[in-house]
């Protein structure tokens, strides 16, 4: 136990030296490349913080099991009726799709996962997934919800991984309008609060007008995101760079804070099919209030 009053000059300098050295180490760590920071983060997350992360996964699983049983029963009955009525249609559809060489509606090359949110300082715009390298997840695996794109995996551990959602300042996605006529780059526009975050489509040609309500999807360029994942809907022009480019604000298809269950891509983006049929003819979750989980 140290003396209450630390009058020793020597001891004082030593303490100051230790503190300065630790600050330098911390700043050095902050300047390390992302790939070299990863193992340190994973080591701490996999040991000291593992009980807290596992507890969150357990809580999420329990809350999923504790959903309203009568509501589920009603939903099941409705679905049963629909299925019974449409069984023959489904079979016919399957045969016709096979004849035309079309793939099934459910995306292949994706695995289901639970998305755990991080509530600590600096953890904003990031999430933890309960799947990892053993499940086939790689860094840069796309993460999608029923409503559209959530984000991308950055770090992969054996059984878990961490990623960034579209609100993260470093998120970028090559994008196109749903008709495939206009291409650009989507990046986040951070508001004062997380709820105000939006996306922006940048770099579209000046002579092309993208009308409000136009859907924006990933273009498949860049090798990270497969083609056709819904990003959002154009709400209006953000900026016009005189004579060259235009930027448009996009209302995001999915709010990351509203999502618990996601699909994670486990194949190279170029090997994945065009996913745009998944969102054809559906309303944006933001509009119907579903918040992304359908």
């Amino acid at each position: 136990m140290p003396e209450y009053f630390d009058h020793s000059t020597r001891r004082g300098w030593k303490s100051l030296g230790i503190a300065l050295a630790l600050v330098v180490v911390a700043l050095f760590l902050s300047l390390l490349p992302h790939e070299q920071q990863g193992p340190i983060r994973q080591a701490i997350r996999g040991t000291l913080l593992q009980p807290f992360i596992s507890a969150q996964a357990e809580l999420a699983a329990r809350s999923g099991r504790a959903v309203d049983v009568p509501a589920l029963r009603a939903e099941r009955d409705s679905l049963s009726a629909v299925v019974a009525a449409q069984a023959s249609l489904a079979e016919e559809n399957r045969r016709l799709r096979a004849l035309l060489g079309l793939l099934n509606r459910a995306p292949e090359g994706f695995i289901p996962a639970e998305l755990l949110r991080v509530g600590t300082r600096g953890g904003e715009s990031t999430f933890i997934l309960n799947v990892g390298r053993d499940d086939g997840v790689t860094s840069s695996s796309p993460v999608i919800a029923a409503g559209g794109l959530i984000g991308v995996v950055w770090e992969v551990g054996r059984r878990s991984s961490q990623g960034i959602d579209w609100t993260h300042p470093e998120f970028r996605a090559s994008a196109m309008t749903a008709d495939g006529q206009t291409y650009g780059m989507v990046e986040p526009r951070r508001g004062r609060y997380r709820e105000e975050d939006q996306l922006a489509l940048r770099g579209t040609p000046f002579h092309v007008d993208v009308r409000p309500g136009t859907r924006v999807l990933t273009s498949g360029r860049g090798g990270v995101f497969p083609r056709g994942i819904l990003l959002g809907t154009v709400v209006g022009i953000e900026d016009a760079d005189t004579g060259w480019r235009k930027s448009y604000l996009i209302r995001p298809a999915v709010r990351p804070e509203a999502v618990t269950y996601v699909l994670v891509g486990i194949r190279d983006a170029s090997e994945l099919e065009d996913l745009s049929p998944l969102w054809t003819g559906s309303t944006t979750p933001m509009e119907d209030g579903a918040g992304g989980n359908r």
Binding site: L27, G122, T126, Q162
Partner: peptide, 28 residues
Amino acid sequence: SGGAAAGLGFGLGLLEDAVSVAAFGAAA
């Protein structure tokens, strides 16, 4: 003491940083 306190702060800050992708080292 000042040095030990700095060690405590560094250790706990590093714990916080372990789930921070973009600002690693800032809490430490």
